[in-house]
Simulated scan of single mutants.
Amino acid sequence: MTRPRSTTTLWRPTGPKELELVRDLGWRAWPPRLPEQPIFYPVLNEDYAIRIARDWNVRHDGAGFVTRFEVDTEFLARYPVQQAGGRTILELWVPAEELPEFNTHIVGRIEVVHEFRPAPEGA
């Protein structure tokens, strides 16, 4: 009898262009990084992802989305948690060249859990 894999929940704030690429990949993988993006940064908590999607992606991309997905915990052990600011600002730094392998360890589908748009004029 096999034990079910242990997974870790990760979050990814994203803009509409990246989200469209995820949709094109069947909600099962992240697209390759652009040349100026040497690292893929999933984050470890929802609040941090919300702040980035709401405060950065909306301003720069016109909309922000927070995605949630599960990754095989044993595989993630190769990526030390990086503290990118305060004690709750935690990320994993996945080198772009390792993203295809990372994608094979996603368990289930990537799902959108929050969407942010600019506030209406005068609001």
Rank of each mutant, 00 (worst) to 15 (best):
P4H: 03
R5I: 14
R5L: 15
S6K: 13
R12H: 15
T14V: 14
G15W: 00
G15N: 05
K17Q: 08
E18Y: 03
E20A: 13
V22S: 13
R23M: 08
R23G: 09
D24R: 14
W27D: 13
R28P: 06
P31I: 00
P32V: 02
V43Y: 09
V43Q: 14
L44E: 11
E46K: 12
E46G: 10
E46W: 09
R51H: 15
A53N: 05
D55R: 00
W56E: 13
N57P: 03
V58C: 01
R59Q: 10
H60M: 13
H60C: 02
H60N: 12
D61M: 07
D61H: 03
G62L: 00
G64M: 06
G64L: 00
G64C: 01
F65K: 00
T67P: 00
T67V: 06
T67L: 09
F69M: 06
F69T: 01
F69I: 02
D72V: 00
E74G: 09
L76T: 01
L76R: 06
L76M: 02
L76K: 02
A77T: 12
A77M: 13
A77K: 14
Y79V: 01
P80V: 04
V81R: 12
V81W: 08
Q82M: 06
G85H: 08
L92E: 04
L92R: 10
W93E: 05
W93R: 06
P95D: 14
E97G: 05
E98I: 04
E98C: 00
L99V: 03
L99S: 04
L99Y: 00
P100H: 05
F102W: 04
N103M: 12
T104R: 11
H105F: 11
H105P: 07
H105Y: 13
I106V: 14
V107Q: 07
R109D: 08
I110E: 01
I110H: 05
E111T: 15
V112A: 02
V112G: 04
H114V: 03
E115V: 15
F116N: 03
F116Q: 03
R117M: 07
R117T: 12
R117Q: 15
A119S: 15
A119M: 04
G122Q: 00
G122R: 07
G122L: 01
A123G: 08
A123H: 08
